[in-house]
């Protein structure tokens, strides 16, 4: 991934729906065009966060497997 995140949320070891709520909170605070990255160990978030990004019309940059966790990256487009 060569996109630099403007906001990084470390929600590792936080349970559902914590990571998704953290991502939505970051989305509210971010400016249009900014990139938000969230780290999570919660399995459900891997499915729910992209679903939220799609439903809210934001851009999903990617879901990446990392060492013991995964990273979801999105761009706020509106």
């Amino acid at each position: 991934m060569d996109v630099k995140a403007d906001h990084i949320i470390d929600a590792r070891n936080s349970y559902c729906p914590g990571p998704l709520m953290e991502m939505i909170k970051a989305y509210k605070q971010a400016k249009v065009g900014e990139v938000i990255s969230i780290y999570s160990t919660d399995v459900g978030t891997k499915k729910d966060a992209p679903a939220w990004i799609q439903k809210s019309g934001q851009e999903l940059i990617g879901v990446f497997d990392r060492d013991g966790y995964y990273e979801i990256v999105m761009r706020k487009v509106k």
């Binding site: 559902c16 729906p17 998704l20 709520m21 459900g44 729910d48 679903a51 939220w52």
Partner: peptide
């Protein structure tokens, strides 16, 4: 409901 289901516990 705020999340991707109707309750927080799957």
């Amino acid at each position: 409901y705020p999340i991707n289901s109707v309750f927080t516990i799957p």
